[in-house]
């Protein structure tokens, strides 16, 4: 990959995501008015029920027509809607820079596949756009070396572009753990982790479990490249970009064993995510980013339904 990735073309992506809703699957904490059903009940939102008047209620909330019909005093109860801050945590370790050009030249049949970092940028930007369109503050935190980039959640105009610009300025390199970032994200918010799971997966999943227990809604987007599922033909000496001491000779005789081992690991990773209380979605780099974003957003709807 080049030092600075080519900027994303936001136009087609944002157009494809117009009208996509990303509702919360549970009642959110009370906060500033938003679009998500809040756990707190109030009097200014959508009418939900009548309650008998109690000492101390505001008399102006008494429904006079019901009083006239029933000769009993009732107050109107409504659901409050609040906004839901969304944090997008992005893994920018060296493994996210796959595949390199040398691998792309040798591969076949996956000419249209984006590299993992490009897919990550597109999905992150798309999710930010969807959340921002519903009025939720969106923030970004990139786990990168030497310094992680952090954009606190905002609802102002230009937030999506700022997130896109911040991602364009990052080059995946080194190993950048996600768990410390997740531990510092406020609780009770929506968190999206976009990672390939090849870094500190144990620590990350532990942090995911703690965040879920604390009330945060965590979604883990697992980015996988087709070459990782089916390596290119030939004889290679594979070297882990984050762990240089891990080197393997790969050829025809080891292909079947690799495919089985990697597939088993992916299934196990998904199971562990679910066990930690997070939603797990696998995104292959051949998928359209807009479609992946819709799938992520709709998974919340299905879960809530």
């Amino acid at each position: 990959m080049s030092a600075l990735a080519e900027p994303l073309d936001l136009g087609p992506l944002l157009d494809a995501l117009r009208g996509v809703k990303w509702p919360a699957r549970e009642r959110v904490r009370a906060g500033l008015p938003g679009t998500h059903r809040a756990a707190q009940r109030g009097t200014t939102g959508e009418f939900t029920e009548f309650r008998a008047y109690r000492q101390g209620d505001d008399p102006r909330r008494i429904d006079w027509r019901l009083l006239a019909r029933s000769d009993r005093a009732y107050v109107r109860i409504t659901d409050e809607r609040a906004w839901w801050p969304t944090w997008i945590l992005v893994d920018a370790s060296a493994s996210m820079a796959f595949p390199a050009e040398s691998v792309t030249r040798r591969g076949s049949g996956v000419a249209d596949a984006r590299d993992k970092w490009e897919m990550t940028r597109a999905v992150a930007t798309g999710l930010a756009a969807v959340a921002h369109a519903t009025g939720d503050p969106v923030g970004l935190w990139v786990a990168s070396r030497p310094d992680g980039r952090r954009l606190p959640p905002r609802t102002r105009r230009g937030t999506v572009h700022a997130i896109a610009s911040a991602l364009n300025a990052v080059t995946p390199s080194h190993d950048a753990p996600l768990a410390p970032l997740l531990s510092r994200v406020p609780v009770g918010v929506r968190v999206v982790l976009i990672t390939d799971g090849l870094g500190d997966d144990d620590a990350t999943l532990s942090a995911v479990a703690r965040a879920g227990a604390a009330g945060s809604d965590v979604t883990l987007v697992h980015v996988v490249h087709p070459f990782e599922i089916e390596p290119p033909a030939g004889v290679w000496r594979m070297v882990d970009p984050e762990l240089s001491q891990v080197q393997r000779a790969f050829g025809t005789t080891s292909r079947a064993e690799y495919t089985a081992t990697f597939g088993a690991w992916r299934a196990e990773f998904a199971r562990r995510c679910l066990a930690a209380g997070a939603r797990h979605l696998e995104v292959v780099c051949t998928e359209e980013p807009a479609r992946a974003v819709r799938r992520i957003a709709s998974s919340a709807v299905r879960s809530s339904a």
Partner: peptide, 13 residues
């Protein structure tokens, strides 16, 4: 063999 940077190298035998 040529060297390739492969994040999933650990899964190869």
């Amino acid at each position: 063999p040529p060297v390739l940077s492969f994040p999933t190298a650990r899964f190869a035998p």
